Simulated assay, not measured.
Amino acid sequence: MTAPTDPGALSPEQARELFRAGLIRPTSGWCAGWTQANLIAVPREHAYDLLLFAQRNPKPCPVLDVTEPGEVSTPLFGGDLRTDLPGYVVYEHGEPVAEVPDVTGRWRDDLVAFLIGCSFTFEDALREAGVPVRHIEQDRNVPMYRTNRMCRAAGRFGGPLVVSMRPVPAGRVADAVRVTSRYPAVHGAPVHIGDPAELGIADISRPDFGDPVEIAAGDIPVFWACGVTPQAAVMASRPALAIGHAPGHMAITDARDGRYLVP
C-alpha cells in the first residue's frame, strides 16, 4: 500500500483506517496537531506493577490513558488498539516473537493497555520554532537507544531508560529545550545533550530501535526520554505476554497536541 503524499494533513481517523488496511509506516510527521502515543499491554495480574513503574518513572513513561481489562479503545483513542496502529511487537517471556500489523488474534480479555506519551507530539512545535527535525527531513524513523541509566523498579518491572535522539543545530538547542519543556506529558525537556557515551551509547550510528539519522555539520545530538522504555522493561522483566507498538509506529489519538501544552 502506498503512503499518502501529505500524511500531516490526515485526521486520526483517516490515518487509522490506512493502518487497519495494512499500511506499515512510522508515524512521525503524521496528523499534524494530533497527539501520538506509545502502546504497551500486559495481563491484568501485572497491570498494577506496570502502572507503578510508570508512576516512578514519569519522564519516560507519562501515562495518558489506561483501559479496563480486555478493552480495545478508550476516550482518547477512538479506534481499535488491536488493528489501528501501523505495527506491533508481541513479547513472550520478554522475547520479541512477532512483529505484525494486527494483533487481533493475540489479544486476550485480561490485557490492560496503557497509552504512554510520545515525543512525536512536540515535533510540530519544534518545526514551527525553526528547529529542524532531521529524521522527518530524511524520511526515517527516529533513532532510539537503550542507555546505562536504570529506571526505578516497581514490582516485577525494571530496566534501562530508552531515549530518542534528534540532532539539533548548536544555535537552536536552547530553543529545542524551551519548546519541549512545555510538553511534560509527552516526555518534556531533554534528558541529555551532547556526548552519547555518557549515556552508554557506544555507536550513535547503530540505534537499538528505529533508523540511523545523518547528523549534519554543526548539529549536536539531543536525547529525550522515550516511551519504548516500558518495552525495555518487558524485555528485562520477562512477563509471559506483552504487546507493544513497533517503535516509531504510534497510536494516533483523538486528542489535540495543545491539550498537553503548559504555559
Score class of each variant (00 low, 15 high):
G159C: 07
H245N: 13
P263T: 03
A54E: 03
L81H: 02
L85H: 03
P75S: 00
R108I: 06
T104R: 15
D219W: 05
P212F: 03
A185W: 11
D139R: 14
A41N: 08
A176K: 00
V142C: 14
E137S: 13
M250F: 12
P86Y: 07
L85D: 04
D110L: 10
E137P: 06
Y145Q: 01
A170G: 15
W107C: 07
E137W: 04
G248S: 03
R206D: 12
H245Q: 09
G117E: 11
A170E: 15
A185F: 13
A153Y: 03
R20L: 09
D257L: 04
E128D: 13
D219S: 10
I201G: 05
Y88A: 02
L85V: 03
N38D: 04
I24N: 01
A240I: 08
E13V: 13
A240Q: 13
F77R: 08
P143E: 05
R238V: 02
D124H: 05
G200E: 09
S28C: 09
A129K: 13
D139V: 15
S119Q: 01
R238Y: 04
G94N: 04
F223E: 09
H46S: 10
T5L: 14
V90G: 04
T35E: 08
L261W: 15
A185Q: 15
L199T: 02
F223L: 04
T35S: 13
R146Y: 04
V142E: 12
H249Q: 02
P196A: 03
V177W: 14
S73E: 00
D49C: 03
L126W: 09
V179A: 08
R178E: 13
W224A: 08
T27N: 08
G155T: 11
P184Y: 07
P184N: 11
E123R: 06
H187A: 12
W30K: 08
P101H: 08
A54T: 03
P190N: 05
P207L: 05
T180H: 00
E13S: 14
A32E: 14
E92C: 06
L64M: 14
H245E: 09
P239C: 02
M150C: 07
I252T: 06
Y48W: 13
F19Q: 10
A125M: 00
P4S: 07
D49V: 01
V228S: 07
Q231V: 09
E92S: 07
V66H: 13
G117H: 13
F157R: 05
G188D: 11
H46V: 00
C151T: 15
V90N: 03
D49Y: 02
A233K: 03
A41G: 09
V42K: 08
R108K: 12
R82L: 03
V177C: 10
R178D: 09
P62L: 11
